[in-house]
Amino acid sequence: MIGDNKKPFGWLLLFILFWCLFACSDSKSHTKGVYLLLDTSGTYSLELKKAQALINYLLGTLQPGDTLAVGRIDTGSFSEKDIVAKVTFDDRPSVANSQKRVFMQKINKFIGTANRSRYTDISGGVLQAIEYLNEVGPGSKYILIFSDLQEELAEGYVRDVPFQLAGFHVIALNVTKLRNDIRDPKNYLRRVEKWRLKTEKGGGTWRVINDLERLDAIFQ
């Protein structure tokens, strides 16, 4: 107590120093959260090999602390069971590297054994992605849709829920043209426009990247 009384200014300075140090630490998260939706329906399942390269790119790009999840789009995608693999990388780079290796193995196994689904529930997948990323709480949230964006819902499935996409970046990748699109491009444009409107109505941003050679545009 005597020491405390003798040097109150010293303690005050120390307190101010610590306060400054903690005040300086950024409360804003700089991490990224990426949820990749893979379409496994119909002919699009043939495109999954390309998705493997995309996932490898993401694994090479994401940093310690970032989150990556891969979910499949099938008949009913709004389900935890449709999450093929998910990981939040450790803060330490060496541990994060090991996690990336394990993740890659899981994806390779999935791509080798994935079954075609009859229907395409993209909205359910997006809702699942929103839920997962909101739960993880990264600094910036990305939903990548690897699909032709042709939604086909099974009977009894209701997906008229509006998306809550504030703070989300939704990116459609490798949106292939269907036979009808080749005959009438308006179909393709209408489909893409529908998803853009849906996303922007929910407060998110919308982009389309069809050229898989410029994947670096995802995080720009």
Partner: peptide
């Protein structure tokens, strides 16, 4: 800088 991320973590930030 890189090995320090192994010690203090690579995901925390002080300011920017």
């Amino acid at each position: 800088a890189l090995p320090m991320s192994e010690m203090v973590g690579g995901a925390s930030y002080i300011g920017p």
